[in-house]
């Protein structure tokens, strides 16, 4: 059955407990096709449990779930055929080569025999592991295994991707490549759900963010809407720090002490920053940089977890 492109991933009021430990109390999220949705929350917030429900491994105690238009409990096979899942921690068949692992997974997803070797080659190239194709998995580094895990999730070209901490253990170059890869996958019309702690990464990758804490969805919004009207620190740097602080004082903008990194000011969003910058340029201050001290995602995350401390 062909699904419309609107069918990404929807979950509403999902609840799951293990014995008397409630792992997920009430989580809702929406991951539309063509977008990268970030699932963000502290350790133990229930992210992995939610992903296990979406990946057809756990029956939720309550709630409605639809993955690619199918119910993971009622019709797990249809969901599996359309979902690529990469767990947060996973093992691998250490004695097999990278190519053999992917060919087996391809067979397990019932790709025709003639297509398996070809698909394994494509995926190895995609995650830059071609030169390790014939090497046993146990010689791969952690980051390389992580990339193999991602390739594994993509074997059957699924329209929905569930990636649990895909950036863990990746070196800076691999992270940048992962970012481009995720954007590309979403660009092909896939629904990509990524959980991660590396907020700076998600900031540049995600279209939407779902903040979760203690088993509940705290908020769910577009990244662009994240910091509307919220005061947060920005850092300004100019060729002449004294001129900068003088200009700020003249305009009555509260600021912190000058440091080699620059001067911090509190601003409410991008528009306010642009306005201040224009004014400073008008005052002939040679500003060389103006950027938020922390990403908007980090700020939202810190605001959410404030109460925990």
């Amino acid at each position: 059955m062909e699904q419309s492109t609107a069918d990404g991933l929807q979950a509403a009021g999902v609840r799951r407990s293990f014995g008397n430990v409630v792992a997920v109390e009430s989580m809702s999220l929406n991951a539309p096709r063509g977008q990268v949705t970030a699932l963000v929350g502290p350790n133990g917030a229930g992210k992995t449990t939610l992903l296990l429900v979406l990946a057809t491994l756990l029956v939720p105690d309550a709630g409605e779930v639809s993955v690619a238009g199918f119910d993971p409990v009622g019709d797990p096979a249809s969901v599996r055929a359309r979902t690529g899942w990469m767990p947060d921690s996973f093992g691998s068949y250490e004695t097999l080569t990278a190519r053999e692992v992917l060919e087996f997974v391809a067979a397990a997803y019932r790709l025709p025999a003639a297509r398996r070797a070809e698909r394994a080659g494509e995926l190895l190239a995609l995650v830059h592991l071609s030169e390790y194709a014939e090497r046993p998995v146990h010689v791969l580094s952690r980051g390389q295994k992580q990339r193999l895990g991602l390739a594994r999730a993509l074997v059957h070209d699924p329209p929905v991707l569930l990636l649990d901490e895909p950036a863990a253990g990746l070196d800076p170059r691999s992270r940048i490549e992962l970012r481009a890869l995720l954007r590309g996958l979403a660009g092909d019309g896939r629904a990509v759900l990524v959980s991660s702690h590396v907020l700076a990464e998600l900031e540049e990758t995600a279209d939407r963010v779902v903040l979760v804490d203690r088993g509940r969805t705290v908020s769910q919004q577009r990244m662009a809407d994240l910091d509307l009207g919220q005061l947060r620190p920005w850092r300004l740097r100019a060729l002449d720090a004294a001129a900068l602080t003088a200009a700020l004082d003249a305009r009555g903008v509260d600021h912190g002490p000058p440091s080699p990194a620059g001067v911090e000011v509190l601003l409410a969003g991008d528009a306010a920053a642009a306005e201040l910058l224009a004014a400073l340029v008008q005052d002939r201050v040679a500003v060389v940089s103006c950027a938020p001290v922390a990403g908007s995602l980090e700020a939202a995350y810190l605001a959410m977890t404030e109460s925990r401390r």
């Binding site: 491994l57 599996r80 979902t83 899942w85």
Partner: peptide, 13 residues
């Protein structure tokens, strides 16, 4: 224990 069962169960086997 080796962490390969769940990924096997989510295939079409």
């Amino acid at each position: 224990e080796r962490g390969v069962l769940a990924t096997l169960q989510t295939t079409l086997l």
